[in-house]
């Protein structure tokens, strides 16, 4: 891995951290944060591998004791809390978004970007989050999934749209994902 890749990984870990400073919108009992926007941007700007590593790095920064999550919390406490699964799923979500983005790269537009963000940023995150929520709380998966979906989906749809618009414009002026993968080149 080149130093340039390390710098991009560090950059998007930092971007997710900075998005935690944006005041959370309290919709219902749970604050909807801007941080999953960072997850979506990491995947759709850096691609699968670097996107995954950047969000993993963000979680390491939180775990070692920096208060980078949007509620001003950090350290190991969030990983023991009820929403642990939702946070832990971020690297996976970024990977899925990045993987899809690499496949859509030659015909990348807002619609494809939105699709990738919804699949990786919403579906993957909610499935993993609900699975962990269910396990640590002796709840059935479907109960937990509905709970998470009700809480997060409205805000996540807005964020998926924002990230899609931004990612398409960034691709136009500063593309980081270099070459289209085989799956796209075959067309």
């Amino acid at each position: 891995m080149k130093t340039k890749d390390l710098a991009y990984i560090a950059l998007f870990a930092a971007i997710t951290a900075v998005l935690g400073l944006v005041p959370a919108v309290p919709i219902g009992p749970v604050p909807i944060t801007a941080q999953t926007l960072g997850v979506m941007l990491a995947g759709s700007v850096l691609g699968a591998r670097r996107g995954f590593l950047s969000q993993l790095l963000f979680l390491v920064l939180v775990a070692v004791g920096l208060p980078l999550l949007s509620s001003g919390t950090g350290g190991l406490a969030p990983f023991a809390g009820p929403y642990a699964g939702y946070i832990l799923s971020w690297p996976v979500g970024a990977f899925v978004i990045g993987w899809l983005t690499e496949r859509f790269w030659s015909r990348f537009n807002v619609a494809w970007a939105f699709t990738a963000n919804v699949l990786g940023g919403l579906v993957v995150v909610d499935v993993i989050g609900a699975a962990v929520l269910g396990i640590v709380n002796d709840l059935s998966f479907w109960h937990a999934a509905w709970f998470g979906a009700l809480v997060f989906v409205p805000g996540d749809l807005v964020k998926a749209a924002i990230a899609a618009v931004v990612a398409v414009q960034v691709r136009r002026s500063y593309p980081v994902i270099e070459r289209p993968r085989r799956a796209v080149a075959r067309r």
Binding site: L6, A7, A10, L11, A14, A17, L57, F58, L61
Partner: peptide, 8 residues
């Protein structure tokens, strides 16, 4: 990479 993220 940790040092870079903290600076960024």
């Amino acid at each position: 990479v940790i040092a870079m993220a903290l600076r960024f």
